[in-house]
Write a protein that binds this DNA or RNA. Structure first.
Length: 474
RNA sequence: GGCCCCAUCUUCUAACGGUUAGGAAAUCGGGUUCUCAUCCCGGCAAUAGGAGUUCGAUUCUCCUUGGGGUCACCA
């Protein structure tokens, strides 16, 4: 489940929460040929990881169970039969090859394909082994979309689409409408690609006896007649090149990949919500509570947004820094370097406190902290590439390191404050700049390209380790 | 090709018809006793083009161009 799909779910979730409504999860598993084992569990895990909770669903049940379309076939058959009885559905007598011929003929004539141009005069009774088609009533429609605004189309886009496939399963086009009615769905949010199907859906809603003038938001639910749900079609999230909608094939990572890669669920939620939505102020990151409070479909962008991973990285850093140390500690559990295995919890918490403002993702932890848990490997290039240190003779370096060791050995109370004092005295005694002496100590004790502030680092490393690393043979 | 939707910095975006067109990311400078990060300050950078309406258009209308979607026994 990539960010595009998650965003659709997120917006629906936010609208539901804001209205104190229910957000329900329904599996639309009517394409048995393309079903992927494990995808249901994966999808649920993705929703949970981002922090989207549903109130009714396949695994938790609810008043309109089952929430799995393959278990509701009887409902679709009943609804289909009602349509047949009304004369609004009929058996498709053609073979797939014949339909394909119609399609190619339309293409050759440079016209859009419409099945109804070949609608059979006297279709056979439907026996369930052929597709069942909707007998459309082509007409123009104008409707309101909560995101796109008012949209109009002509009769030429309405066709006799398939209600039930020859394998007995309904199409999405049919099943979702029946389920939505059964489950009293008030809001439909989905990708923009469904806009072009809307006229067909509207035609079916009308055949089903819907009140075409009102929606649940402007009219009370009436017993006899179903009301049209609110429609909100969301613009696509584009790939980073911006030339097509984001999909797995363009390397769109699964949201769980981001979680595994050290991204916070709430950072993902904030980032995803602000792709195509903002509250009109200059606020850049939002907590879930703020999103529920401030989200509005009317402020959703109508144009597609590109997926900008750099911005996600920044948002993630923002959230990491806002976490309490306790909270952060529980979240980084799986990200410690292996060498931290035997370290005490207290020690790890202190290391984490120093690393917190440097973490862009939780996965950065090992690179930032390894020298706190194991002897670092010497990397002389840190000295030879340093524009101040490379001017020094090796003997000068040895003298300065020895002086530092001697000074630090005399520190009685080993904490950041006393180390700082000793370091300042060392500066005076050697007459060297911080850029020389501090760099040297930092490099000898960590052998890392960067590390937290020196006094805190040494304090945490401990006196013995600090002195030992400063006396290592060069 | 028909139909539908869209169009502000590189990117995400703000702007009741009246603003030096704002913020954020990225990037480039500077500051915070060493590095990295944080934080702060500053720089760079946009209304696709053309008509029209209006005293005045990023904003309203039309055309052009560009982009996306769709035209499945997929959703």
């Amino acid at each position: 489940m990539h960010v595009g799909g998650i965003r659709t779910a997120l917006f629906a979730y936010l609208v539901a929460r804001q209205a104190s409504g229910e957000f329900i999860l329904r599996f639309e598993d009517t394409d048995k040929k393309r079903e992927v084992a494990g995808s249901a569990e994966h999808l649920i895990a993705s929703l949970r990881a981002i922090g989207i909770e549903y109130d009714e669903g396949p695994d938790i049940g609810g008043p309109y169970a089952p929430y799995i379309q393959s278990q509701r076939l009887e409902r679709y058959r009943e609804a289909a039969q009602a349509l047949i009885d009304q004369g609004r559905a009929y058996a498709d007598p053609y073979t797939p090859e014949q339909v394909q011929e119609f399609r190619e003929a339309a293409q050759a004539a440079k016209k859009p394909f419409l099945y109804r141009n070949n609608r059979p005069q006297n279709p056979p009774a439907w026996d369930g082994t052929t597709p069942l088609r909707f007998k459309s009533d082509p007409k123009p429609y104008t409707w309101h979309d909560a995101v796109m605004g008012d949209i109009s189309t002509g009769p030429e886009v309405i066709d006799d689409f398939i209600l039930i496939k020859s394998d007995g399963y309904p199409t999405y086009n049919f099943a979702h409408i029946i389920d939505d009615r059964d489950m009293r769905i008030t809001h439909i949010m989905r990708g923009q690609e469904f806009v072009s199907s809307m006229p067909n859906y509207l035609n079916l809603y009308e055949a089903l006896g819907y009140d075409m003038q009102h929606t649940p938001s402007d009219a009370p639910q009436t017993e006899g007649q179903a009301l049209l749900p609110v429609f909100a079609h969301l613009p696509h999230i584009m790939n980073e090149q911006g030339n097509k909608k984001l999909g797995k094939r363009d390397g769109a990572k699964d949201v769980l990949d981001y979680i595994r890669g050290g991204y916070l669920g709430e950072a993902m939620m904030s980032f995803i919500a602000t792709m195509g939505w903002n509250d009109g102020t200059e606020q850049e990151v939002f907590t879930r509570g703020e999103l529920v409070e401030k989200f509005s479909l009317t402020k959703v962008q109508r144009s597609g947004a590109r997926f900008d991973e750099k911005r996600l990285l920044w948002v993630n850093g923002q959230f990491i820094r806002q976490l309490s140390l306790d909270d952060l500690y529980t979240r980084v559990e799986a990200f410690w370097p292996e060498t931290a295995q035997n370290a005490s919890e207290e020690y790890k918490r202190q290391v984490l406190a120093l690393a917190q403002e440097r973490l862009k993702t939780l996965a950065d932890l090992p690179a930032l902290t390894s020298y706190f848990f194991a002897e670092p490997g010497e990397d002389r290039s840190l000295i030879t590439d340093n524009k101040q240190l490379k001017k020094l003779e090796p003997s000068e370096i040895d003298q300065l390191v020895a002086a530092a060791r001697g000074k630090l050995a005399g520190v009685e109370q080993w904490d950041a404050e006393h180390i700082q004092t000793a370091l300042n005295e060392l500066l005076e005694q050697t007459g060297q700049k911080p850029g020389i002496i501090f760099s040297l100590i930092r490099i000898y004790t960590t052998w890392a390209p960067f590390s937290p502030e020196l006094p805190a680092t040494l304090a945490l490393l401990g006196k013995d380790t600090t002195l030992a690393r400063l006396s290592a043979p060069v």
